[in-house]
C-alpha cells in the first residue's frame, strides 16, 4: 500500500527500522501536517504536536521491531490514528474535552497496546537519562555487559585485576543505577503506569 508518496508503506517501515534519515523526513512530509492540525485544533500547541508525533513514531518503531504491526490501512492513516489515541489520552490526563476529531479508519483491537508501548518507551528513556549520569567507568562496564562481551574480555578491556572484581564492579554500578532511578519522584509515576498496564493486559510485559 502506498501513502501518496514515492515510497511504499513497507519501504517506509523498513527505512524506519534502519533509521534512514530521508525516510524519517518523508514520514513528516506525509503525516505531520494532519497530526499538527488535529492537535492544534484540540487544546494543543506546537510542542505537543511535535512530541505526540515523535512518540507515535517510536511506538510504531517498537511494534515493527517486534513484528506486531499488521497494517489494515495506509501507514499515513495508521500514524494519524496512533497520534489521535495518544493525544486523547494526554487530554484526558490534562482534564480537557475534545471537540474536533476528524473521522478516520479505526485502529483494530490488537492495537490496544499503543499506550503500553508509549509508557514503556517513556520508562526506558528515563532510565537511559539516569544511566548517562553514572561515572564513565560504570557506563562503560554496563555497556560492555549488555553488548554480550565475555567476562574475560571485559576484565581485560577495563584493566581490572580479576574477573571477580569485574563482576562485583558490574553489580555495584547496576545497584547504583537502580538506586538513583528509585530515588526520583518520576519513577513512582512511571511505576504506577506500569502496574496499571500490567493489570490491563496481563502478560504484556513478558511479550517484550
Amino acid at each position: 500500500m502506498k501513502s501518496g508518496n514515492n515510497y511504499s508503506d513497507q519501504a517506509l517501515l523498513k527505512g524506519l527500522i534502519e533509521g534512514r534519515e530521508e525516510i524519517l523526513l518523508e514520514l513528516y512530509r506525509i503525516s505531520y501536517k494532519t497530526v499538527r492540525h488535529l492537535i492544534l485544533s484540540n487544546h494543543g500547541v506546537e510542542e505537543d504536536a511535535k512530541d505526540i508525533f515523535q512518540d507515535a513514531i517510536m511506538v510504531i518503531f517498537q511494534k515493527v521491531r517486534k513484528n506486531e504491526l499488521q497494517l489494515s490501512c495506509s501507514l499515513n492513516t495508521y500514524i494519524y490514528s496512533v497520534c489521535r489515541n495518544l493525544w486523547l489520552k494526554e487530554l484526558s490526563l490534562r482534564g480537557r474535552t475534545v471537540y474536533q476529531f476528524e473521522s478516520t479508519e479505526e485502529i483494530t483491537d490488537e492495537d490496544n497496546d499503543i499506550e503500553l508501548w508509549q509508557h514503556y518507551n517513556e520508562r526506558i528513556s528515563f532510565y537511559r537519562k539516569i544511566f548517562e549520569e553514572l561515572s564513565e567507568d560504570c557506563k562503560r562496564i554496563l555497556k560492555l555487559f549488555m553488548s554480550g562481551e565475555t567476562i574475560s574480555n571485559i576484565t581485560r578491556i577495563m584493566g581490572y585485576s580479576s574477573e571477580q572484581h569485574t563482576k562485583n564492579r558490574r553489580y555495584r554500578c547496576k545497584l547504583s543505577l537502580i538506586q538513583r532511578i528509585r530515588a526520583t519522584s518520576i519513577y513512582n509515576e512511571l511505576k504506577n503506569e506500569s502496574d496499571e498496564d500490567n493489570r490491563k493486559i496481563p502478560g504484556w510485559y513478558a511479550k517484550r
Binding site: 524506519l16 533509521g19 515523535q54 517510536m58 518503531f61 517498537q62 514503556y120 518507551n121 520508562r123 526506558i124 528513556s125 532510565y127 537511559r128 544511566f131 554496563l142 555497556k143 549488555m146 553488548s147 547496576k174 543505577l177 537502580i178 532511578i181 517484550r208
Partner: peptide, 15 residues
C-alpha cells in the same frame, strides 16, 4: 528494563 535502556542504542539513535 534498565538493561534494555542501556543496550538499546538503536532506539535512542532513532530518537
Amino acid at each position: 528494563e534498565a538493561n534494555r535502556a542501556i543496550g538499546d542504542d538503536a532506539f535512542f539513535i532513532l530518537k
